[in-house]
Write a protein that binds this DNA or RNA. Structure first.
Length: 478
RNA sequence: UCCUCAGUAGCUCAGUUGGUUAGAGCAUCUGACUGUUAAUCAGAGGGUCACUGGUUCAAGUCCAGUCUGAGGAGCCA
C-alpha cells in the first residue's frame, strides 16, 4: 500500500507538526550520516529527514546515496538546524531502490545543461528541470482551462495527414513500405498504392486547416497537440517535434483575434505567477546567478518575475507592418548600418529587426499586423489595399515570434484565385474550399508554439531544455 | 543548410615555441569524524587526449577529412 504517503508539497503547506507521517521520494543528499534531503517531485522544496546517530544500521546508511528511493515514517518536528524550519524524525526507514553511487551519473552539484541534455532520462530529478517541467505542466493546464472557461471546444486534429499542400515546411513521411525492395512505378518512383493508407502520408505540420473545419461547426475551438517539421533547423528555438496550440474562431476579425491572443497570453502567465511561484523564484535566482558572469550592461533590466508581471499588466504594443518598417528605417542601427540585412517595404522582417523592435525600441511584446501578402500564406485574408493580408505576429523579448495568426480568407473566389496564383493544387484541399462554399463566415485563428511559451516563462535559453525528450536534427535520444 | 567555436578522467577544466611516465578541483572507493545544509578531514584508484589519415626523430599540441556538440543565420512556432 503506497497511498498512505504524504506529498512533501502538502507537508510544507500544512506544517502538521507533531503528527506521524510517511513520505516516499528520492534522496538528494545524505549529510553527516544523519540528514537526508528528500525530494518527491511534488515541489522544489526538499524535506529534511533526521536519522538520530546510531538509530539505523550502517548497512542501511551506506545505501542512502544520491537518487536512491526510500520510504520513511516518523514524527514531524521543528528543526534544530538553521536551514529549515521542520524535519521528519525518522522511526521507520525502508530503501525501495538502490542507486549505486559509483554508477549514477548526476552529482549533487551544478552540471551544465548540455551534459544534462544527454541524461534526459534523469535530468528531471534536478532542481532546474524539476521546476521547468512543473511549470510546463502548469502552463498546459492553464491553456486548457482558459479555453474551456470561454466555451472553446478542445478539438483533436489528425497527426497523420495525407494533404501535402499545407506549405508549412518539410514533412516526415509516414510509411509501412519496407526500407528496401518496395515496389516502384514504371518511372522509378515508389508505388504508394502499396503503402498502408494507399497513398503518401505525413506527420502533421499544423492542425489549422482541420481546425477551421471545426470552427465552422462549433464556433470556437482550439487544438493542442504534437506537430512535426523535418526542417534542418539548428537553433535554440526549433524542434522537429513540438507542441502547438491553435485556436480557430468563427465570427472573428483580425482585431478580435489580437484581443484574444493578448488576453490568452496574459491569462496563462497570471496562472503560472500564482500557481508556480516557488519554481519561478528558483528559476529567477538561477538566471540572476548566470547573469552575474556577464558585464553589467548585458544583464537584463528585469528579473524573470518582473518580466512576466510586466507582460501581464501592460497592453501589448500593436503596430502595422508598414509602421514597423518605418520605425526600423529611422532607427540608429539602421542609420549606422549595423543591421546585416536591409529593410524595405515588402521584405520579411529578419530576427535582428524583430529583436530591435521588441528588445530595444518597445521593450515589451509587440503585435505586428497587416503584412505584405507576398510573404504570407495563401489562406490569409486579403485587405482592401490589395497589397497586404490580415496577418499578425506576436514577438516576445528573447524568443522572437511566439504567436503567428491571421484572419482567414472566407471569400471563395478570393481564396481560389490566391491558390491559383501560388499554384496550390485545390483538388487535395477540396474539403477546405467546401467551408467557403457552404455557409462561410469571417473567421480567424492563431498558433502558439507551446515550447516557446515555456521558454519565455521559465527563461530557459534553449528550447531543448523545456521539452522532456527533445527531437532535433541528428538527435533523438531516449 | 551556411558561418564561427569546441571535443583531454564520471563532471568542470589546465596542459607553454611539438620534447621524459598527461595534471588539478569535484565525484567515486577506503578510513576518520558527527546537528549537517552541494557536510568536513586524510589517503587511494581512475585516461583509446572524439575518430581516420598525414607531416615529423618525436603529436594532446601542427595539417586534412569525418563525426558530435554549442552559438549565430536562414526556415518558422
Amino acid at each position: 500500500m503506497f497511498n498512505i504517503k504524504t506529498k512533501i508539497k502538502s507537508i510544507f503547506l500544512e506544517l502538521p507538526i507533531g503528527s506521524t507521517i510517511t513520505v516516499m521520494g528520492w534522496v538528494r543528499t545524505f549529510r553527516n550520516n544523519q540528514f537526508i534531503s528528500l525530494n518527491d517531485g511534488s515541489t522544489i522544496q526538499n524535506l529534511q529527514l533526521y536519522l538520530p546517530l546510531g538509530s539505523f544500521d550502517d548497512s542501511i546508511c551506506k545505501r542512502l546515496t544520491t537518487s536512491s528511493s526510500i520510504k520513511a515514517t516518523g514524527e514531524l518536528i521543528s528543526s534544530q538546524g538553521k536551514g529549515q524550519e521542520i524535519e521528519l524524525k525518522v522511526e521507520k526507514l525502508e530503501i525501495l531502490g538502490d542507486s549505486p553511487a559509483d554508477l549514477y551519473p548526476l552529482q549533487p552539484k551544478k552540471h551544465n545543461l548540455e551534459f544534462l541534455r544527454e541524461q534526459a532520462h534523469l535530468r528531471m530529478r534536478t532542481n532546474t528541470f524539476g521546476s521547468v517541467f512543473r511549470i510546463r505542466h502548469e502552463l498546459a493546464f492553464a491553456i486548457h482551462s482558459y479555453f474551456h472557461q470561454r466555451g472553446f471546444l478542445y478539438w483533436h486534429t489528425p497527426i497523420i495527414t495525407s494533404s501535402d499542400a499545407e506549405g508549412a515546411g518539410e514533412m516526415f513521411r509516414v510509411t509501412t513500405l519496407p526500407p528496401t525492395g518496395a515496389s516502384t512505378l514504371p518511372d522509378g518512383s515508389l508505388d504508394f498504392n502499396a503503402d498502408f493508407f494507399g497513398k503518401q502520408t505525413h506527420l502533421t505540420v499544423s492542425g489549422q486547416l482541420e481546425g477551421e473545419l471545426a470552427a465552422m461547426a462549433f464556433g470556437e475551438i482550439y487544438t493542442f497537440g504534437p506537430t512535426f517539421r523535418a526542417e534542418n533547423s539548428n537553433t535554440t528555438r526549433h524542434l522537429a517535434e513540438f507542441w502547438m496550440v491553435e485556436p480557430e474562431m468563427a465570427f472573428y476579425d483580425l482585431e478580435d483575434n489580437m484581443d484574444l491572443a493578448e488576453s490568452f497570453i496574459k491569462s496563462i502567465i497570471q496562472q503560472v505567477l500564482s500557481q508556480g511561484r516557488e519554481d519561478l523564484q528558483f528559476l529567477e535566482q538561477r538566471l540572476i546567478d548566470e547573469e552575474m558572469q556577464l558585464p553589467a550592461d548585458k544583464r537584463s533590466p528585469y528579473t524573470l518575475i518582473q518580466k512576466l508581471e510586466l507582460v501581464r499588466d501592460t497592453p501589448f504594443v500593436r503596430i502595422s507592418y508598414t509602421e514597423a518598417v518605418n520605425i526600423l528605417i529611422q532607427s540608429n542601427p539602421y542609420k549606422k548600418k549595423k543591421f546585416a540585412y536591409d529593410i524595405q517595404w515588402g521584405m520579411d522582417l529578419q530576427s535582428e529587426h524583430e529583436r530591435y523592435l521588441v528588445e530595444k525600441h518597445f521593450k515589451q511584446p509587440v503585435i505586428v499586423y497587416n503584412y505584405p501578402k507576398e510573404i504570407k500564406a495563401f489562406y490569409m485574408r486579403q485587405n482592401t489595399d490589395g497589397k497586404t493580408v490580415a496577418a499578425m505576429d506576436i514577438l516576445a523579448p528573447g524568443i522572437g515570434e511566439i504567436v503567428g495568426g491571421s484572419q482567414r480568407e472566407e471569400r471563395y473566389d478570393m481564396l481560389l484565385s490566391r491558390m491559383n496564383q501560388l499554384q496550390i493544387p485545390h483538388q487535395q484541399l477540396h474539403w477546405y474550399l467546401d467551408t467557403r462554399r457552404f455557409g462561410t463566415v469571417p473567421h480567424a485563428g492563431f498558433g502558439l508554439g507551446f515550447e516557446r511559451m515555456v521558454q519565455f516563462v521559465t527563461g530557459m535559453s534553449n528550447i531543448r531544455d523545456v521539452i522532456p525528450f527533445p527531437r532535433t536534427p541528428k538527435s533523438a535520444l531516449y
